[in-house]
Structure formats: C-alpha cells, structure tokens
Design a protein around this nucleic acid. Sequence first.
DNA 1: CCGTTCTTTCTGTAAGAAGTGAAACATCGG
DNA 2: CCGATGTTTCACTTCTTACAGAAAGAACGG
Lengths: 174, 174
Amino acid sequence: MNLTTTETKFILHWGEMGTRWGINRTVAQVHALLYIAGRPVPADEIAQTLSVARSNVSTSLRELQGWGLVKASHVLGDRRDHFETMQDVWAMFKLVATERKRREIDPTLGVLKEAIAQAEKSGEKATREKLAQMLEFFETVTEAFEEFVKMSPGALKKVVKYGGKLQKLLGVGT
Amino acid sequence: MNLTTTETKFILHWGEMGTRWGINRTVAQVHALLYIAGRPVPADEIAQTLSVARSNVSTSLRELQGWGLVKASHVLGDRRDHFETMQDVWAMFKLVATERKRREIDPTLGVLKEAIAQAEKSGEKATREKLAQMLEFFETVTEAFEEFVKMSPGALKKVVKYGGKLQKLLGVGT
DNA sequence: CCGTTCTTTCTGTAAGAAGTGAAACATCGG
DNA sequence: CCGATGTTTCACTTCTTACAGAAAGAACGG
C-alpha cells in the first residue's frame, strides 16, 4: 500500500499521540493505517507499508483485537487474514474509553475502597477523609462518563449547544 | 515522614496509574504524597519518604509545578522550599485535563486541519473525508469537555442524576 | 565576603519497553 | 501425509526513558 504524504503525516502523528497516552506507537500506527485504508488489509501489507517487522504487526493486531478495535476478515481467494477497523470515530472512542475505564478506573475504585476501609480501621482520620474525597470524585466522574458514552453524537452536540442553558435550568452555577 | 501501609498502598497505586497514562511514576508518587500530606513538605523529606534521589524529586516537582499542580511555599524559620498541592480533587482534575487538552488535543486539531487542506488540494477524496470525520469528532468532544469542566461538582452530580431525562427532553435517543 | 545550606543541572548507568528475525506452530491444498 | 503458505511465539538487540550521584549554582547568615 502506498501512502500519500498526507496519510503518512496523519499516521505518524497518531503514533505519537498513542505514546503520550500509554499506547504503543506501532499499535497506534497500525490502527491509523487501517482507519485510513477503510478496507481489510493483510498483515504483511501493513508491515510493508509501515516498515516494521511482520511479527510486530502481529502483536499489534492482537492488541487491537483485544480492545475490540480491529477484527479479522477474509477475502475470497486469499488465504491470508485481513484486518479492518470500524470507520465510526465515535464508536472507536466509546470502545477505548469504556475499556480503559474497566481496566484502570475500576481497579482504582477498588484500591480506594480498600484503603478507606483500612484507614478507617486504623483510625487514620485525615487520610481516610482525603481518600474518600478522591473516591467520590472518581465515582461522580465515572457516572458522568457513562451518561456521556450513552449519547449519540447528535445528542452530544445538542447537549453542548444547550449546555449553558441546562445548567441554568438546573439552578447550578458555573 | 512516615507512611502508614494505607498511604503507601495509595501512593504506589497512583504511581502505577500515572505510568499507564503517560505520566512519570515518580512524578505521580510525589503528587500523591503531597496530596496525602496535606501540608507543605520540603523536598528532601519527599525524597526520603519515597526513597528516591533528591535530584529526582527536584525534577518531579518542577514538572508538577509546570502543570500548576504544585506550588512552593515557605515555613517560618526554615530556609528550605516546601511544596504543597491543592486538596480539591476536582480542581486538580480540571487543571490536568485542561493542560493535556492544550498540549495534545489542540496540536492534533491543527494537524488534522492541515492534513484535510492538503488532502483537499491533492484530490484525495476518501482520505479527506475520513480525516474530516475525525476532526469533527475531536471538535465535538472538545466542546463537550469544555462545558464539562465548567461545571461545579454539584452541577455535575445533578446532570448525572437527570441525565437520562435531559436526553429525552432534547428528543435524542441513546 | 566566606562558609553553610539548599536546589538544580548534568552525565553516566540501569531498567524497561519496543522491535526484529528466526524458529516453532498451524492450516490448507493437493 | 507432505510441501507450501501464513501466523505466532520467543530470545535477543536496540532504543528510550528514568534515575542516581556528582558537580555546579544560588541564596542566605554571620
């Protein structure tokens, strides 16, 4: 697959973004490539296009499949696995966000709850209080987030549009 | 400073969380420590408590100050700088989120816009369209996010509480 | 000023993550 | 069942980042 300069620029940037958010550069690049391609691509073609080892692509694809971002598909007359990603950006985001919540936020909630119980038992009042505040924050944001990802993009846009008014309606200041 | 097991557990977990989100482990630990301490702490005490090099603490504090999360303060009769972090979790979150948006999302919007213009010029219709969708997504989410951080925690809770009803009110499905 | 205390910068080392290529493994057609 | 094709796993290398410790740099007290 031959990339135009535009496509290359996008893929490289996407890779950088990935690293900043704790996602492997190659993984992010593979995903970007599949998004741009918009069709099932065989692994070796990905490797060639991105100039990375075939094995590296294999690992990255497995990772992406683990996130539910990529699925394997097949093309008639071709034994090779092909891979494609969803073309709906909002759906992509939901997947990743939900999965990260599950993998990272939920365990954090657990740790906080445990720590609070422990602090309670050993009479560490100040620490207990701080952890409780943190827990409350996480719980609120988590719930808000869950409402958020339930929305359709259209709904989201309306909420943004009327956001200020809604806040007034609810009688809460900024 | 002597940490209880509860505090240690929290600080270690916070460090891990940091690494998963592209934040240096020590930086995150220092921040957690200051949050738990809830009072100005001198750098050498931080180093001792976390068992890291004094220089490492210095770098981490500088980083945290860059995020606006930590500020230096002074204690009468002590020449050493002391450092403290805000105790309001919501405020902390706002700071970090806003700053990350500035450092990472905004440049991404720029790259996308450039790439779209370029794709337009060179007639890459499909690519242009995909990038445009991505840009639209980012813009919508960014706006939503801006409404979000404007809210007080109280407002947020109400929105969560009435979230479903609001969506119905707006006539948008899930 | 000069010694003391505290802070930051810098350089080398160590730890960790990412990536390659070879080898093992699987699948399929004939 | 065997050769061909495609995929994954694994051991090793490379690259990056984090960290420690030394040295340099400030700030202050006397």
